[in-house]
Write a protein that binds this DNA or RNA. Structure first.
Lengths: 140, 140
DNA sequence: TATTGTTATACTCTATAACTATA
DNA sequence: TATAGTTATAGAGTATAACAATA
């Protein structure tokens, strides 16, 4: 059966999401919580920026942060100059889980793609790179 | 910044999921509902098979099917020989929406990937094909 | 006035456990 | 006994609208 390029992307995405969900669950995290933690590895982020990065309404994000905060994985750090704002930062335990989850996904996907030769990996990564730039942050 | 192959896949997947969600919403469907309808385009499927195809517990699927059935998009068709079983089939309206949603995702992704040259598309599709076979159905 | 983040509300999605009916 | 599907329950995820506090 012939698959169009877009359909290939969609199916690939489902496989990746499934691996991501399993790796998250291994740390007793929901995929959304794991994604949040992984985004925070780069450093603390404010709620507004975070909602854009995750494509979530701010009100949805409040609850998501509440639940991981309740579990001691992140903390709301008050902004120094703007008393309305806060930044979400990983705790030590949050950092630990974030790396475990990240590693879990990476390992699973590496195992799954072990048969893809290095030159094809490079080609694929290069072909896809512009998409990531376009889809990630530059379209709010 | 260097991205590993797995990380590229994860980010790509997030972009695709986001486009999928937007295309679904354009038809007033949740992504889960749209995915269900798209799976059913190939033909009616029983609950057990469907739960495996979607990586969902059967009890979760019951509610998902309930909601799209309530909206008149699918019907539970009794199985001819097994009175316990049923198959979920698209209605006319469901078929219409399924194709609209499918087309919506395809169009968005085509637009997003317009700059990827044909030979790279083919390479990517070839590199990824084994993954899809492995991740889709053959691992129960 | 505009922005940051939260609250209130109403759904949808999901899993686990227990169940019914049929095979 | 085993299988197909549902119900009961509880919690997580999400959006919309309205809000409080600060800029």
């Amino acid at each position: 059966m012939e698959l169009g390029f877009s359909e290939t992307l969609v199916r690939l995405s489902h496989v990746v999401q499934h691996e991501f969900a399993e790796a998250s669950r291994a740390q007793d995290l929901t995929p959304q919580q794991a994604q949040l933690l992984c985004v925070l590895i780069a450093g603390p982020v404010g709620m507004t920026d975070l909602s854009q990065a995750l494509h979530l309404e701010k009100s949805s994000l409040t609850g998501l942060v509440d639940r991981v905060e309740r579990r001691g994985l992140v903390a709301r750090v008050p902004h120094e100059h703007d008393r309305r704002a806060c930044r979400i930062a990983l705790t030590d335990e949050g950092t630990r889980l974030a790396h475990l989850a990240h590693r879990g996904v990476t390992d699973r996907l590496d195992a799954l793609t072990a048969d893809v030769p290095p030159d094809r990996r490079a080609l694929l990564a290069a072909a896809v790179a512009p998409l990531l730039a376009a889809g990630a942050g530059s379209r709010r």
